[in-house]
Design a protein around this nucleic acid. Structure first.
Lengths: 231, 231
DNA sequence: CAAGACATGTTACTTTATTAACAAGGTAAT
DNA sequence: ATTACCTTGTTAATAAAGTAACATGTCTTG
């Protein structure tokens, strides 16, 4: 009775230390799509198995780090052999949530928004830009490749209809926060913001600010000093 | 004699641990331009003094972190008061190397390259795009705002003439590595690469790969799960 | 001019991330 | 079947980054 009681208590503590979902760091999540791209290439070349050491050579990350990253989510490899490329690809797709094509909207159909729409449509097999939005009558109604530019008033309907969870923001900074509020209000869960302003969003909405000016300015630090390579 | 010998030995070891220049992490360097932007705004509004606490509210970083970041480079504040906005701005400019306008080239004058050229010219007071480059006769000779599109064969001359140390790469991935080799060969010290491929460069050249597809894919992870905000 | 309030910069602590080491499992060849 | 060789996944050690605490110094106010 006592031993059993103690054992049960310990178990409860262990559960508390590992509260349901183990939290995985942003750094790990960022590396997963890099593994994915390499796997896509390998599969395209009919390579069926890959070791962490070979993945290391193709990604620049260390083999230990790759194994550890994957271990966060399960044991996908075979000792002595490595990872089956198809199986690992499939697992990573499931982890990220790319197993079905993700609907994305682009807000702001200026030069940057247009370029990002084309870039994404052409370069990314896992996401799909369902529409771009703008307020200017000059661009509303246009098409960017096969993507229609709609008026922002139609955003909520489109988001709802296509179950859009990701928005790319490429509007002038003076409208960025308002645009962020609107997309968040429409039900979007992730905002990828290119405006040179750090937008805020309610809890539950994940914001990634990709301020290219700030990024460029930070890089200039390395233009004068002799330093190691990035990433 | 013995004690002195030991003491000297220890000192030598300490020096080796701290080799002349103290290394400052990428994370710190990335935050500096954010402080800079806030300072620019404050100065525009004739604010002369700012505390780390107020900077914290405007940047989202903690006050402790801001103080610690700045402390890497010196003591710029006044106890009891805070930081003089003009003076701190000036210090950060010197730290990053932005005290004189930095010459930048854009390689690849497609949609993304054009958008980045316009974005940078309009949004960034500290850098100056001196030219864009392409190989296609259709775009060579065009102008993007007031930036000329030149043939890549002229790159080395332009880089040398304007002392260009930073290149933005926006070429198709199949040409990215060749383009990186060429700009590195021209004497550029920093490569900001937007091609969906991790380019490599010789030692002494700092590469930052900004693969937007990979970034977007990693964000999708947060579209399904409930998670905290980024950055 | 003394005292209270305030903010920096430094040092110590905690947390997180990366690197290394290794035990256990699996393959292939003899 | 046994041996030699690989490679994974886990645990341990190291390094890095972020957070907190506080001693020191400055300003302001009565």
């Amino acid at each position: 009775m006592w031993e059993r009681g103690v054992a049960m208590y310990r178990t409860r503590l262990d559960r508390e230390n590992e509260p349901g979902v183990k939290k995985v760091s942003r750094s790990v999540i960022r590396r997963l799509p890099v593994y994915l791209r390499v796997l896509d290439n390998l599969i395209g070349n009919d390579v069926e198995v890959i070791s962490s050491r070979e993945l290391s050579e193709r990604t620049g990350f260390t083999a230990e780090q790759i194994r550890k990253d994957l271990a966060h989510f399960g044991a996908f490899g075979t000792k002595g052999t490595g990872y089956n490329t198809e199986a690992l690809r499939s697992e990573i797709l499931k982890i990220i949530g790319l197993h079905e094509k993700t609907a994305v909207i682009v807000v702001g159909a200026g030069h940057l928004g247009t370029a990002l729409t084309r870039y994404n449509v052409n370069k990314n097999p896992y996401t799909h830009v369902v529409a771009a939005f703008d307020t200017s009558p000059e661009v509303v109604g246009d098409k960017i490749l096969d993507v229609e530019v709609l008026h922002v008033s139609e955003m909520e309907e489109v988001v709802s209809k296509h179950n859009v969870r990701v928005a790319i923001l490429a509007v002038p900074s003076e409208h960025a926060q308002a645009a962020a509020d609107q997309v968040a209000g429409s039900g979007v869960k992730v905002i990828f913001n290119f405006a040179p302003l750090w937008v805020r969003a309610p809890d539950g909405v994940f914001v990634h600010n990709a301020d290219l000016s700030v990024e460029l300015q930070s890089l200039i630090y390395y233009a004068t000093k002799e330093r190691e390579k990035a990433h």
